[in-house]
Amino acid sequence: MRDIMGMMGKVKEMQAKMEKLQEEITSMEVDGQSGGGLVTVRLTGKGDLRSLKIDPSLFKEDDIEILEDLIVAAHKDAKDKAEAMTAERTRELTAGLPIPPGMKLPF
Rank of each mutant, 00 (worst) to 15 (best):
R2E: 05
D3T: 10
I4W: 07
M5R: 07
G6E: 06
M8H: 04
G9V: 04
G9N: 07
K10R: 15
K10D: 11
V11N: 01
V11H: 01
M14F: 08
Q15F: 02
A16P: 02
K17T: 08
E19W: 03
K20S: 04
L21H: 06
Q22C: 02
Q22F: 01
E24S: 05
I25V: 15
I25P: 05
I25Q: 11
T26L: 15
M28I: 13
E29G: 03
D31P: 03
G32A: 15
S34N: 04
G35E: 14
G35N: 02
G36L: 09
G36S: 07
G36K: 01
G36A: 08
G36R: 02
G37D: 07
G37H: 00
L38C: 06
V39L: 12
V41C: 15
L43Q: 14
T44Y: 10
G45Y: 07
G45L: 07
G45I: 05
K46Y: 08
K46Q: 13
K46A: 13
D48K: 11
D48A: 09
L49Q: 15
R50K: 15
L52P: 05
K53L: 04
D55V: 02
D55G: 02
P56E: 12
P56G: 04
S57M: 02
L58Q: 08
F59K: 00
K60R: 13
K60G: 09
D63M: 05
I64K: 09
E65Y: 04
I66F: 10
I66P: 04
E68R: 10
D69L: 07
L70D: 12
V72H: 06
A73M: 02
A73K: 08
A73F: 00
A74C: 05
H75C: 12
K76V: 11
K76T: 11
D77G: 04
K79S: 11
D80T: 11
D80V: 09
D80R: 09
K81Y: 06
E83M: 10
M85P: 00
T86K: 09
A87W: 00
E88K: 11
E92M: 13
T94Y: 04
A95I: 06
G96N: 01
L97D: 04
P98D: 14
P98V: 12
P98K: 06
P98H: 02
P100E: 08
P101H: 11
G102A: 07
M103R: 01
K104G: 02
P106D: 05
P106Q: 06
F107W: 05
F107Y: 03
